[in-house]
Nucleic acid binder design. Structure first.
Length: 607
RNA sequence: GCGCCUGUAGCUCAGUGGAUAGAGCGUCUGCCUCCGGAGCAGAAGGUCGGGGGUUCGAAUCCCUUCAGGCGCACCA
């Protein structure tokens, strides 16, 4: 596996080298400011930026740069001055074909493992035991999964942690109710177990509020649970185990890389909590306030102008999630040696994380070298612009939401003349429905609220997951057909996916691609888009914004459409053109497949 | 009151210092009897919430203001 140097990087290096020659030594490190351009392959705006410091006219500097770029190593990059001093840069066809061939010859499509050696903890999903997963868990689960996949793909050591809500006073109430209603069926009922528990929890709450005697028994049950009473703990374990089974079923359906190995319940941290408060108190960071132990962060005040506390121990001696969040930080830093901790949590928790991180920093538990980041996301809205609810105003269960999306995808696919049998249709409708939901979420700017529109998201047109799956399927169709119908003249071979292809040894040939061939404009645009895959993935990791990958894949797909429209592949005018175009098809298909895979979306062979 | 997020085409959204602000949906006009019509090409549609500033250059950075959403002590 050899890393492929992106064409943009090659151009930057060439411009950088030229600038070093042209500018005074103290400006030698100037940013070459190379961007894609609609007037050439790339443009450099560097001369305008440095002109003032260099005491020269931008066009004058640009002219010198042109000369030096022209003297650079082959293959030559063509540069010309434009407007006030822009440099329009055009790269030779051979450079482009060479990168197509090199990416095709690499399993990783030339994407480097730029995050090697970094350890990243991703905290996401976080459902609650004995409760149905609902729309409120959707974004954390989907976004966290994608970020984990991208960091993993870039070579980082990723630790996925699903911080399950498995502890709290509500379990005393539920367990007491179950104990008093032994006939209530909920164990071992698969998907229905969670429905049953939801109902039992509501019933328990009702009784808790209506019957003071039950409320008392429920409170003492909390004490029993905390004290480790055997029978109580046994029921609690059942609740956790049944819930985890249900969560895993949803993750599998959603194609989320979480299973029991990633479950990290809050209860795990119970033994550490007294020590957390003790250490903070000894350090003078936590102080007593209204009976609770709290920490304060400079400059954070409430409506009355009083400082806002982080409550690490409640007045009644119990611990809230501030304490467990601090405990997890210690574990992740000390044991897991994390370099980066990502909390994929609703934006409304922003203040909480600010206080937690500040407290952990001051306690010395979170050194400056470790990046802790609240990866905030907005609310899922209905088409009415208000938080997404059922018609009756209830929270939407995740299973129902997925059922609807898959159902819509099924209806659309059934109307199309796909020639698929019923079983295939079901499988593909499922893949399409899941893709629709995930892509709709991931393609929007993370921090903004977004409108959940089932009709739009399963559409075959526009920036949707289904559109990208369809683009991939059609490319695969062409590649299959190419194998069945070789060109009528002496075969140059189909697009080889390995450098060991039959033509690899011939001059001008790489991975079956003739790198000396001329490029059509549509081929050029597509190839240059494909060359940016690595950069797109780095951008996602740098910004923690998955929608950049969505935008990239959509740009690739639309570039492919224009190519497809103007450049016949199977009926290309000659075998070399056909082979090279098949190579573009192959690389496009694999880029979409890999990119969708990083979004947690499968790309079917046909649909 | 303070803090965070958001404001871009009729609608849903991209675009975080570069030349003419882009897509999809919707509207209008052409084109292709072609490898899976995911059409393709073009038109119409914009005070980038308003104002000021920095810069050779601002949707993008800074200040200010307006509007909306959210958060601000013992629920997680």
């Amino acid at each position: 596996m050899t890393d492929v140097v992106a064409i943009k990087d090659q151009v930057e290096a060439a411009v950088q080298a030229a600038l070093t020659e042209v500018l005074p030594a103290e400006l030698a490190g100037a940013d070459p400011v190379v961007r894609r351009s609609d007037r050439a392959d790339f443009q450099s705006n560097a001369t305008l930026a440095v002109a003032k410091k260099a005491h020269r006219a931008p066009r004058d500097i640009a002219a010198d740069v042109v000369t030096h770029v022209a003297e650079g190593e082959s293959p030559k990059i063509d540069a010309e001055v434009s407007g006030p001093g822009f440099l329009n840069l055009t790269v030779p066809d051979q450079m482009i074909w060479s990168n197509v061939a090199a990416r095709l010859a690499d399993d990783r499509l030339g994407v480097s493992t730029s995050r090697t050696g970094e350890r990243v903890v991703v905290d996401y999903s976080a459902p609650n035991v004995a409760k149905q997963m609902h729309v409120g868990h959707l974004r954390s689960t989907i976004i966290g999964d994608t970020l984990a996949r991208v960091f993993d793909h870039l070579g980082a050591g990723v630790i996925r942690q699903n911080h399950i809500g498995d502890w709290g006073t509500q379990f005393g109430m539920l367990i007491q109710y179950l104990d008093e209603h032994p006939d209530a069926a909920w164990r071992g009922r698969g998907a229905e177990t969670m429905d049953a528990l939801d109902g039992l929890y509501k019933a328990a709450r009702k009784e808790f509020e209506a019957d003071p005697a039950f409320a008392d028994r429920a409170r003492s049950r909390v004490v029993a649970l905390q004290a480790g009473d055997e029978a109580t703990v046994a029921t609690w374990r059942d609740l956790v185990a049944e819930s985890e089974t249900a969560f895993e079923a949803i993750y599998q359906r959603l194609n989320i890389q979480l299973d029991h190995d990633n479950f990290d319940g809050e209860s795990r941290y119970n033994p550490a909590l007294p020590g957390i408060v003790e250490a903070l108190t000894e350090a003078g960071i936590a102080i007593e306030s209204d009976g609770a132990m709290v920490t304060f962060t400079d400059g954070v005040v409430n409506a009355d102008g009083d400082p806002v506390p982080l409550i690490v121990r409640k007045r009644d001696g119990g611990y809230g999630y501030a304490a467990t969040d601090l405990a997890t930080i210690r574990l992740r830093v000390d044991e897991y040696r994390a370099d980066r901790i990502l909390y994929v949590v609703d934006a409304r928790q922003a203040l909480h994380f600010r206080l937690v991180f500040d407290t952990a920093r001051r306690a010395g538990w979170l050194p400056e070298s470790v990046h802790a980041r609240h990866v905030a996301f907005g609310t899922v809205l209905g088409t009415d612009g208000r938080p997404f609810k059922t018609r009756s105003g209830d929270t939407v269960r995740l299973t129902d939401l997925l059922d609807e999306a898959v159902g819509r995808a099924h209806a659309i696919l059934a109307e199309r003349d796909t020639g698929l049998d019923a079983e295939e249709l079901d499988a593909i409708a499922n893949a399409a429905g899941i893709a629709a939901v995930k892509y709709a979420d991931l393609s929007n700017t993370r921090t903004k609220d977004y409108v959940y529109d089932p009709a739009q998201m399963v559409s075959f047109t526009g920036n949707t997951g289904v559109y990208l799956q369809y683009a991939h399927a059609r490319i695969r169709s062409i590649l299959r057909k190419a194998e069945q119908t070789p060109p009528d003249t002496t075969a140059t071979g189909t697009a080889a996916t390995s450098a060991a292809g039959p033509d690899a040894g011939e001059p001008g040939m790489l991975a079956g691609v003739d790198v000396t061939a001329p490029l059509e404009p549509a081929e050029r645009a597509l190839a240059l888009a494909l060359d940016e895959f690595d950069q797109a993935l780095r951008d996602v990791a740098d910004t923690l914004e998955p929608h950049r990958l969505c935008g990239y894949l959509y740009a690739v797909a639309t570039a492919y459409t224009k190519f497809y429209d103007t450049c016949p592949v199977l009926t290309a005018p000659n075998p070399t053109t056909r082979t090279n175009r098949l190579a573009l098809c192959d690389l496009t298909g694999r880029t979409l497949d890999t990119g969708l895979g990083l979004l947690g979306i499968t790309a079917p062979e046909r649909m």
